[in-house]
């Protein structure tokens, strides 16, 4: 648990961050809360000769809500998300999901940017962002660009972010929908055995729209468009519920680990998704 030697940088602005990234390419990494990267470095599973600490960079924190559009700076902690009354009003699923991430000590340090940018399939925020159809803001040498969360993840720890880019914020529309984040885990601090983020809107007793994403059931978060589509137009009868679950099962690809074999994970995913849908439907 002793990391290899690394250079530590603590720039005051984004230009300083980008210049280090430009100079050292994939030998440099930014660190936000450090809850994914630092353990990997201590285990010597990640070698980062140049570590850039973002905490002094201005403009990366804070939550703003403007005309139904929510922007969360990358360095905003899960603790801040949980305790932001305006965000909880506008997007209560953010608080519900954040409260299921690790434990309070981790949430004081863990950030939304680190959680979504690292590409760890165990992280909860990526699936949540896909459910919310969020946009990620990236800054690089050529300026700013945005990427849909649903297009961002390529494989475990592999994302659309280039080595010389920094994820600076996430943005999404206030959902105004019934919501639920359901997570099964073995213990506090664990990644999900299965987790589901669900948003549902209702019109005249029928489902008008549904967005469903699953966590830690593949090497990326899984946004299941077909699962959501299976619910639209229904009043959540057994057939449409089963169709949604079957569609989700067609999209996930869990692997066996200490949480259990594939067969169990698929069963747990089904149960968790059903519960999330029922919960979101009740709140819609």
């Amino acid at each position: 648990m002793i990391p290899a030697a690394f250079e530590y940088y603590r720039p005051k602005d984004m230009a300083g961050v980008l210049s280090v990234l430009e100079e050292h390419g994939d030998d440099a990494r930014v660190v936000a809360g450090g809850h994914s990267l630092i353990p990997m470095m201590k285990l010597r599973m990640a070698e980062v000769p140049h570590l850039i600490d973002l905490q002094d960079v201005a403009g990366l924190t804070g939550i703003s809500i403007d005309a139904g559009r929510i922007r969360i700076g990358a360095m905003t902690t899960q603790h801040e998300i949980i305790n932001h009354a305006g965000l909880t009003d506008a997007a209560p699923i953010m608080r519900e999901a954040s409260l299921q991430i690790a434990d309070p000590q981790v949430r004081y340090m863990g950030t939304v940017g680190g959680n979504v940018a690292n590409g760890d399939p165990g992280n909860d925020m990526p699936g949540l962002m896909q459910c919310l159809d969020a946009t990620f803001i990236l800054v690089g040498p050529d300026g700013e660009r945005s990427v849909a969360a649903r297009d961002f993840y390529e494989a475990a720890y592999m994302t659309d972010r280039a080595d010389d880019e920094v994820l600076t914020a996430v943005e999404f529309a206030a959902p105004n929908a019934g919501y639920a984040y359901e997570k099964q885990k073995r213990k506090i601090g664990d990644y999900a055995t299965a987790a589901a983020a669900v948003l549902i809107t209702k019109e005249g007793g029928a489902c008008a729209s549904a967005s469903i994403a699953m966590t830690n059931l593949s090497d990326t978060p899984v946004y299941s468009a077909d699962a959501g589509a299976a619910l639209v137009g229904s009043s959540l009868d057994d057939a449409s519920m089963k169709a949604a679950v079957d569609a989700m099962l067609g999209d996930i690809d869990p692997t066996e680990d200490n949480r259990g074999p594939v067969e169990f994970k698929r069963h747990a995913a089904s149960v968790i998704l059903r519960r999330a849908i029922e919960n979101a439907w009740d709140r819609a």
Binding site: Q184, R259, G260, P261, F264, H267, A268
Partner: peptide, 11 residues
Amino acid sequence: HDHWRIWKTAN
């Protein structure tokens, strides 16, 4: 008796 083993017993 972790989750998956209990699930397996039930299964």
